[in-house]
């Protein structure tokens, strides 16, 4: 392929189509093994449920959302496929960062147009929105948009189209954050 990128001192990322094909095969393997796709938001949800259940068990049981995810047999919600997959995701990312030389000391990445502080605030707001949205959408970009659509779910397609569509629709208003 293009040999110039290696000479240039740019970031060393794998070819996006290669990454996509490998990710697709991984998704296929996940469907084959687990019968369901990849997920990232489920682990956070289960962690929150566990924390609330530990601190205020009666409150958790009274809430129609927490109680949905507390196993009836008294085992921990954390003993779950999603949690282990999320831990794996973290270390997989770390491994890749180490191999390609991106695993460095703590830093904040932001466009030159904004300060570090603005970037952090924007990231927190984005996180909160994603936290709320992913619960309504029954999954985030990996669980609903990618895995959902890949298993031909109509809901997954809705989430994917709307997520990207709204992103584009509002991109203009938040351009200062990025360019």
């Amino acid at each position: 392929m293009n040999k110039n990128t290696k000479i240039k001192n740019g970031p060393r990322y794998i070819n996006p189509y290669l990454g996509g094909i490998l990710l697709g095969l991984l998704l296929l393997a996940t469907f084959f093994i687990a019968g369901r796709g990849l997920s990232a938001s489920g682990a956070v949800k289960l962690s929150i449920v566990t924390i609330v259940d530990k601190i205020a068990p009666s409150h958790a049981m009274a809430n129609g959302y927490y109680s949905k995810f507390i196993p009836a047999d008294g085992s921990s919600p954390l003993f779950n496929w999603l949690i282990f997959a999320a831990i794996g995701t973290f270390f997989g990312g770390m491994l890749s960062g180490a191999i390609f030389g991106r695993l460095k000391k703590f830093r904040i990445e932001h466009a030159p147009t904004v300060s570090s502080r603005t970037r952090i605030i924007a990231a927190i707001i984005g996180g909160i929105l994603f936290g709320i949205g992913s619960q309504f959408g029954r999954g985030c970009s990996s669980g609903a948009a990618l895995s959902g659509t890949a298993s031909f779910s109509f809901g997954g397609l809705i989430v994917m189209l709307l997520m990207f569509g709204i992103g584009y629709a509002f991109a203009y208003f938040f351009r200062k954050l990025w360019i």
Binding site: L38, A40, L103, K104, A122, A123, V159, F170
Partner: peptide
């Protein structure tokens, strides 16, 4: 909501794990 969060935050949950992982 996620679309808004995407363009403001610049991550989605899965990618934020990997961003944390490299610091």
């Amino acid at each position: 909501i996620m679309g808004l969060g995407f363009v403001i935050g610049g991550f989605c949950p899965g990618t934020s794990y990997t961003a944390c992982a490299i610091g």
